[in-house]
Each structure stands twice: as structure tokens, then as C-alpha cells.
Write a protein that binds this DNA or RNA. Structure first.
Lengths: 336, 336
DNA sequence: TCGTAATAATGAATCGTTTCAAAAGAAGGA
DNA sequence: TCCTTCTTTTGAAACGATTCATTATTACGA
């Protein structure tokens, strides 16, 4: 029992295959009664268009590939949702790939998307993939970097000024009078992490009596944050930083868990804490978390718009959009 | 500048197209030196297999479609990640569709996946789609229900016993001495919500002096929880329930925000609170949240396994796997 | 040297659409 | 009736990879 093809429909309706195709793609070209006859044959036979054949003939699919660092991170899930919606209004579908900070999986998704001849790729890269992306564009696939910037302006990109974000967060701690600052870093291979650190460095540099310590976390998750927290507490109270800036909210939440629950430190009295991303859960944390807000949905939507722009008008120069981050003050630094 | 095809590679290497195809699919059938020559032509020309052509010929793609209710919900993102991993080991890729509780988007993704001739569909349905799914299977696409059960055993499924989960949560509240129980429901069109409520009803029925009140939330999000919380507080303290069970953790976190921050109620003293899903953030809430744990990753992995099972051996009967939920007690009910 | 068997390479046919030049049909005017 | 114009329908060609029956090549023993 083979699926019905356009030829079966044509036979059933007593017309030529070209007519069936026209009914599907240019209904106005077909006389109303013929059209009706074909449509009822389609539903009689349960005909479903074969996208592979369509794509083969058209030379391109109607989908856009999106590769994110971590779909479990609310920042990215919100971004993806907005991208999907924006693409849908442009008549395209988004297929989502989750690299999970794994370069191999990232590369695997790039392969897959290229074989599927997606119209374009939105990617928030793990590894240095500029070579691969360049090859992709050379073969006609449009690329937009998301939450990342092209060093050489070779690609369109949508990002947030993470240096400024790091600066905002750290200056906030310093203005509260904190001087022993710690930055909890995720993998420094990530540009986001490096930029946020750079911003923190700049801010600390503006206060001569302040110090900055950098602590590495294995990944940017709640669990990793907890691990760093446990490590920190082992030092004893005197050795603790009094202001901590985490590379993202997940780390901050984990740290908070460790400090307040396992060890009975007070936030913000003993340690003031700032996260990054302002995910929904930041506001409902044990101590509501001060954070840096990034417009996740806006980023996703804008990225699709840049891509569509490139698709519509053939030769457009790459554009980079940079959004400004925003400090959201809550209990973890304000002491109510 | 057209992308290189298998024919271009054949010309460049001075062999027939069939030989190139063999190099790609059955390398052993080709003499080593020929193979090398072809491979170097492939990299010279930057040849990338055209998946559409491959699929057209093969009659099926190598992808599996996954439609989830809400990718922003950590339960589903964790489920998806596990499904992707499991599929990758089986040589398949997962494409993710997020219905966002929207029947139209769900239907749209079903269309898309069917046109793409995915090997199978994993779906956590919003609307009643059994008719559509039946049609899908009739045309040869395998279907596995996720976090949902087929009423009539027509499909394989992986789920958690939500009635039991609702019972566990509610009995816990009752055993703490609470008697005015409220259930914060999400959309009752969802089987999950109905089942959890049913479990709550059963538990309340076992305590003759207990009452159950059902409050509806527009959606299962933090925001909706906050709205219900505000509504609840307007009644005044005497009218409040003393035990609240929420249809999921997001609702519970929103409720918690509203009760503790805007209105100064104490959890668990004034109101004991239980959520559902045990997402990562439950443990790091203002008051760590008691919840019902569902093995999200295991569900995703098992769903893929059931699907692969159906794909390998043609005529297998549908199987249903039901996992048991687990009560995780934290501060929101235990009073430290 | 010849014959046989094993190994390697070939290339036409196929999958299901879309496209488009050409043919057929309809309508109207002279 | 014939010609023109406009609308509708036709069906072969093309997209690019895979398959498989056929042909070519090689190796080896007699």
C-alpha cells in the first residue's frame, strides 16, 4: 500500500499531472469545476504532497535551521519560540537543533541542515565554526549569528553587548560598597563569558581598592553553580567575596542554593549576588535574583528578520544588530 | 554557481555516477584507489549530498518529528534532549516542533512532518488528534504518544501515572493536617490536568472532613500562577485554602511569588504548596517547592526506543509504558 | 594459452514534483 | 464560416541520488 502520488490523483480525477500541480500551486489557473474535481480526488485518496520531490525540483527547502547552545536554558527557549513565530509569518518552518555546548553535536547539525538544503541557518556557536559557515554561505545558504558577533563582519548577527552587561552588573556591586568581587565564569571558550568578564574587569578597574577573582564552572547549569558554591564556602567566611557576579542565572541560582541552604550564609548581607539573562525563574528564587536582562524574544525575531531580508533581496551586505542589556535589581543585592 | 552534484563528482573523478554513490554508501564495493580518487574529488568540489534526492529515492527521510506542548517548560526541554540523544545513537535526527499549547500550530507541525515523510512522530498532544494520527499511521508513519496515553490502545505511548501523582500530592497535604484543599488547574482540555485533578479528588474523598476547590488558570505558566495568586489573596485570610496543589511547577512558582512577595503570606504556615514536574528550579525557589517528580529524560529516551522498535520490526503491537511519579518533599510543605 | 570465477565499474531507470512550451478548446467578431 | 484572442489543459523534461542488471577487468589454475 503505497502513498498516493500526484499521478494517482490525476488518474482518479481524469486530468493530467500538470493540472493537479496547478491546483496545488496556482489554483486560479484552473477552471473552478476542474479544481473541485481534483480537490475531491485529493481528499478521497488522502494525498499528501511529497516534500522531498518538491524540494528536489525547487532546489531548496522551505525550512530554516536554528542551532542553540542549550534549549534547557529559558533564554534560548524563549528565543526559539520567537524565531519560530517570526518564521511562520514568513511562510517558513524552523527546525531546531540543540548543540548542548557540544562541538560535535553542533557540527552534526550543520551537516544535517546542509544536506537538507535549509534556506538559512541561525546559530549560536559553541566552537569556532567561521570556516564552516563561510563554506555554507559560499554554497548559497544564508547564515545569521545569534547571541554572537562575527569578528570580521562576514555574517549578519544579532547580539547583546555583553561587555556592557558585565560592566553594569559589576558596577552595581561596587556601588553597593562591595570590594571583593568574584566572577563565576562558564567555559571561557564562549565569547559571551569572555565579554562579561571583560566588562567586569573594566568596572573593577574604575575602583582602585576593589579586587576581582575569577572562578571557573564546568558548565553553565544550576548544578555547576552549586558545586562552585560548595567550594567557595569551604574557605570560611573571612575568605569569601562580598559581591559575586555569575555568568548566567542558572549558575547564580545554583550558587544561591548552596550558600543559603547547605551553608547558612545570608544573601545579600554576607554575599551580594548578580546573575545574567533574567530568566523567568530569577524573580521566584529563594532570594529574588538581581540580573541582567537580555531581550531573548526580540533577538530571535530580529534574527529571522535579518535572514528573510537576505533571502528576499539577493545581494545585501551583512548587518549586525546589537541590543543593550538592562540591570534588574532585586533582593539578592538590594537587601530589600 | 550551482552546488556540485554527484554527476559533477563523477566527471571530475573520471568514473560513473553509480561508483560515486557506492563510495558514499558501500565503500567496500569500490577498489581502494578509485575510492581515494572519488573522495578527493568530493572534497575538491565541496560536494554535499542532496538529502531531498536521497529521500525521494528512498521513500522515507531519516528524521523523527517531536511535537511538545511547551519547550519553555524544563520538563519538556529535558525530555527533548534525551530524545535527541537516543535518536542520534540510532542514526536518526530529531526535528523539534513547539506547539505552545496551540492546536493550530500543532496541526501545522503535523502537516509539515507528514510532507517531510519523517519516519515517525513523537507527540504530546494539545487537541484531540487521534483521527489525524490514525491517518498518519495508515500511511506508514509510526506514532508514539508522549506524556499521554491512547484511550483505545491504538498507539504506543510513554506516560506517567498522573492520577497517582495527583493522589500523592494531595494525600501529602492531607496528612499534614490540611483540610481546605485547592487545585490550581491548567486548561482542562489536557489529559494531564484532568488526571491530576482526578487523583486529587480520590485523595480528598478518603478524608471525610476535607474539601476540594478547583481554580482555573488560563495557561500553565509562572505568570498565570501569579494571576491566580492575586485573585486568591483578595478573598482575605479566612477564606484561603490551607493546602494548594498546582497542576505544574510553573503555576506553583507564580503562586508563590504572588503569596509571599506581594501579599505577605507564609508558606507553608499559612498555605502549604505542592507543584508538579520537579523541574530544576523547584529546589531553588523562594521557598523550596515540594513537587511530584517525573522522569523526563527517561520518558524521552523510552519514547524513541519504542519508535525504533516499531521501525525495525514491521508488525509490532503498540506498547504502553507507564512510569510511576514520586513525591519530593521540600520547604513549601515541610515547614523546614 | 585459455577458461572460469571473482571483483569492479557502468549507466539507464526510478522516485514525485514542478515547469513550461505547445496543443486544445471556447468565445467573440467579421 | 473563418480568424483571432484568451483561457485551460496537456505531458515531457528536469531535479539528484540510488539501485541493479549488465559489462569489463583481473587473477589464477589447468
Amino acid at each position: 500500500m503505497r502513498a498516493a502520488s500526484i499521478k494517482d490523483v490525476a488518474n482518479h480525477a481524469g486530468v493530467a499531472v500538470g493540472t493537479v500541480s496547478n491546483v496545488l500551486n496556482y489554483p486560479d489557473r484552473v477552471a473552478p469545476q476542474t479544481r473541485e474535481r481534483v480537490l475531491s480526488s485529493i481528499s478521497d485518496l488522502g494525498f499528501v504532497r511529497n516534500d522531498a520531490a518538491r524540494q528536489l525540483r525547487a532546489g531548496r527547502s522551505r525550512t530554516i535551521g536554528l542551532i542553540v547552545l542549550d534549549i534547557g536554558n529559558p533564554f534560548f527557549s524563549s528565543l526559539s519560540r520567537a524565531a519560530e513565530d517570526a518564521a511562520a509569518t514568513g511562510g517558513r518552518a524552523v527546525v531546531l537543533g540543540n548543540s548542548g555546548h557540544d562541538a560535535q553535536r553542533e557540527s552534526h547539525y550543520l551537516d544535517l541542515f546542509e544536506e537538507q538544503q535549509v534556506q538559512g541557518v541561525l546559530i549560536s556557536p559553541v566552537a569556532n565554526v567561521s570556516e564552516r559557515l563561510r563554506a555554507l554561505t559560499a554554497r548559497g545558504t544564508k547564515v545569521v549569528l545569534v547571541d554572537s558577533r562575527a569578528d570580521d563582519g562576514g555574517f549578519s548577527s544579532v547580539s547583546v553587548d555583553d561587555v556592557q552587561g558585565g560592566h553594569l552588573a559589576t558596577r552595581h556591586l561596587l556601588e553597593l560598597g562591595r570590594r571583593k568581587i568574584a566572577f563565576i565564569a562558564g567555559p571561557q571558550s564562549l565569547r559571551q563569558v569572555r565579554d562579561r568578564l571583560e566588562g567586569a574587569r573594566q568596572a573593577v578597574g574604575e575602583f582602585p581598592d576593589a579586587t576581582l577573582e575569577v572562578l571557573d564552572a564546568a558548565e553553565m547549569s544550576v548544578l555547576a553553580g552549586r558545586t562552585v558554591g560548595d567550594l567557595l564556602v569551604e574557605r570560611g567566611l573571612a575568605e569569601l567575596p562580598d559581591g559575586v557576579f555569575c555568568a548566567n542565572d542558572l549558575l547564580a541560582l545554583g550558587l544561591m542554593q548552596s550558600l543559603t541552604m547547605l551553608h547558612t550564609l545570608r544573601i545579600p548581607e554576607d554575599v551580594a549576588l548578580v546573575g545574567y539573562d533574567d530568566i523567568d525563574f530569577a524573580a521566584s528564587a529563594i532570594v529574588p535574583l538581581t540580573s541582567i536582562r537580555q531581550p531573548a524574544a526580540l533577538i530571535g525575531q530580529t534574527a529571522i528578520e535579518l535572514l528573510l531580508e537576505q533571502l528576499e533581496s539577493e545581494a545585501t551586505v551583512p548587518r549586525s544588530v546589537v541590543f543593550k542589556p538592562e540591570l534588574v535589581v532585586r533582593g539578592s543585592t538590594s537587601g530589600k
